[in-house]
Design a protein around this nucleic acid. Structure first.
Lengths: 128, 128
DNA sequence: ATTAACTTTGACGTAAACGTTAACTTATTC
DNA sequence: GAATAAGTTAACGTTTACGTCAAAGTTAAT
């Protein structure tokens, strides 16, 4: 498929796709005819995974180092020792974020409960 | 304390402090003498909470709406209904992120285990 | 053949979140 | 009192992640 359909199906713009290619996040799509890029379903899956990782708050630079793990045999990737270190660091950061987000959630819930309860008391006090 | 010490203790720069004040994230520090800002321990606590929320990936704009809840009686804050909606949305987004991060962690751990096991097999195969 | 839709590259613009610099004043230390 | 450190505002610079535009060409449908 061409870049417009590729981008649409992934929920991004063609500009984004060319930008990711320039970063090395996406392979240069196979060029045909007058230089048009053509993409495969496999490449679409990769772009969708990139989107997922972005949603997690990873920067594009971080995604560059992480995304190969989803589409290549990890044992065949170059520089495994280094990747192992990067992964462990990611894991540690992820654990920290999980804990912080869970705490944030508890605090949020408590405040929601408090405001909600107060509003209900106000409503009852108004005789409604 | 003055802005330099205030920033240092919070782990940010004076530029950041002035920027946050311009956004309304921080109260304008009390001015003395020739316009120097002076800050209190309470304001330091607020700045540290802002940092914590930033670490969670919230934008400064989002932090503006969330941070008052930590330092003011939620029932006394203006526009409670609206804040309740914002909080509920945050809670929903936080739950989504928690689930996604947990999944991401599982995937990361699995890949770490796989690479680690392969490396160990390599080492044993080398008779070392 | 015509036309609409799509593509290309390059480059400037935008937003968020500051960093850095300049010019000037004040506070602190010796 | 001099020297040094710290403070002020304003403004331009930087980075990340694109958006938008221009100019020109290609592809696909009719």
């Amino acid at each position: 498929m061409r870049i417009g359909e590729f981008a649409r199906r992934a929920g991004v713009t063609a500009r984004t796709v060319r930008y990711y290619e320039s970063l090395g996040l996406l392979e240069p799509g196979e060029r045909q005819g007058a230089g048009f890029r053509y993409y495969t379903e496999a490449e679409l899956a990769r772009l969708q995974k990139i989107n997922d990782l972005k949603e997690l708050g990873l920067s594009l630079e971080e995604i560059i180092s992480v995304v190969p793990l989803y589409f290549e045999d990890p044992t065949r990737i170059r520089g495994k020792q280094k990747i192992l270190e990067i992964l462990k660091q990611h894991l540690q950061e992820t654990d920290g974020k999980l804990a912080a987000l869970a705490q944030f959630r508890i605090e949020l819930q408590a405040k929601i409960d408090r405001i909600q309860q107060w509003l209900e008391e106000q409503t009852q006090r108004e005789g409604k």
